[in-house]
């Protein structure tokens, strides 16, 4: 690991992006009006996540009219290659509420649930628990505009600096890469979880919970995960909590990683990137959480979308010819 260490540099992660659609906002408006009303307490919701399917654009956390209907894990599947992430939504009563909301406490609350799931082993058995998210939103039902802010909590600490070898594109000509990609494609097609392990030879995919078995067999596992990020130079956000799991549960200090991406819906080597990451020991007592989404100007802040022209019954009626 000495030569690898010399090349290691701090690893940076591309943040998750939210993509709530018009159907989602129509449901939010309906819920606020007739179900939650003035209550601001949490509502469980879900979003769909896919591996990046294009080099030039990253995937996003898609929320739609079904997001509050208790999507099953298989619903994200969309028949393969998709997963469901669960989260919590707070429908606030005022626009100011969004800016004054205790975001730090909310992030910590969700983040600590993730840590508990890592400790209990639940996250190893059901890795989607690592993708838990939060959202605060204010629906202005007069103008049909929605102000919202998503949080994708990642656990870290001042000392928990993950380093890695340089991020490399996998190659179709490389036999090992081709075999690994095939094993990943099979895993996804069989409805496997969003993160998994590859056995040392790369020929077979196994669940995360097999980590200690593989190591006990004297082999070196590779961590693979469906990466919503399409960048050739960075892994996506989901790897952060996976890295915490690897350090905290497996006590791994070095781990080979494959960021699994697709082209036309199938895993191909040239879409994926790989590297070896080096993990310091994760200190739970020093933990902090990050992950509030940036606004359209790339700054910390909520986003606003105005759907008045397409959804407000009054505006629609006045436009009708």
């Amino acid at each position: 690991m000495t030569s690898a260490d010399a090349r290691a540099r701090a690893l940076a992660f591309a943040p998750h992006a939210s993509a709530p659609d018009g159907g989602f906002w129509a449901r939010v408006a309906k819920m606020k009006l007739s179900e939650t009303m003035l209550r601001e307490s949490g509502i469980s919701c879900a979003c769909r996540v896919r591996a990046a399917n294009r080099a030039e654009i990253s995937g996003a956390h898609a929320l739609d009219h079904e997001s509050f209907d208790g999507l099953n894990a298989s619903d994200g599947g969309d028949g393969g290659g998709g997963w469901v992430a669960r989260g919590d939504a707070r429908l606030l009563n005022t626009r100011e509420g969004v800016t004054t909301f205790d975001r730090e406490a909310y992030l910590r609350e969700i983040g600590e649930e993730i840590l508990r799931d890592i400790e209990s082993g639940d996250a190893e058995r059901d890795p989607s628990r690592l993708m838990r998210f939060g959202m605060i939103a204010y629906a202005c039902l007069k103008s049909w505009s929605f102000t919202y802010w998503f949080a994708f909590p990642a656990a870290t600490s001042a000392e928990f600096t993950i380093t890695s070898t340089s991020v490399e594109k996998m190659r179709a000509e490389d036999e090992g890469d081709a075999m690994r990609a095939q094993a990943c494609d099979n895993w996804i097609a069989s409805g496997g979880a969003f993160a998994w392990l590859l056995d040392e030879d790369g020929a077979s995919a196994r669940p995360l919970a097999d980590y200690s078995n593989i190591v006990a067999e004297g082999r070196r596992p590779t961590l693979a995960f469906a990466d919503t990020c399409g960048s050739a130079t960075h892994p996506g956000w989901a790897l952060r909590n996976l890295a915490v799991l690897a350090s905290a549960s497996w006590e791994a200090s070095e781990l080979d990683v494959v960021c699994v991406r697709t082209r036309k819906g199938r895993v191909v080597p040239e879409a994926c990137v790989k590297f070896t990451m080096f993990l310091p020991k994760f200190d739970k007592d020093a933990v902090k959480f990050v992950g509030w989404e940036r606004n359209t100007r790339g700054k910390m802040g909520p986003r606003t979308v105005d759907l008045g022209t397409s959804m407000d019954p009054t505006q629609l009626a006045s436009q009708a010819v």
Binding site: P15, K299, T304
Partner: peptide
């Protein structure tokens, strides 16, 4: 649309790829 113009304090995070 009155965008909320106020910028909030950035998260203290060295490991994020910033789009801006």
């Amino acid at each position: 649309i009155p965008e909320i113009g106020e910028d909030f304090e950035d998260e203290d995070d060295d490991a994020v790829v910033l789009p801006s």
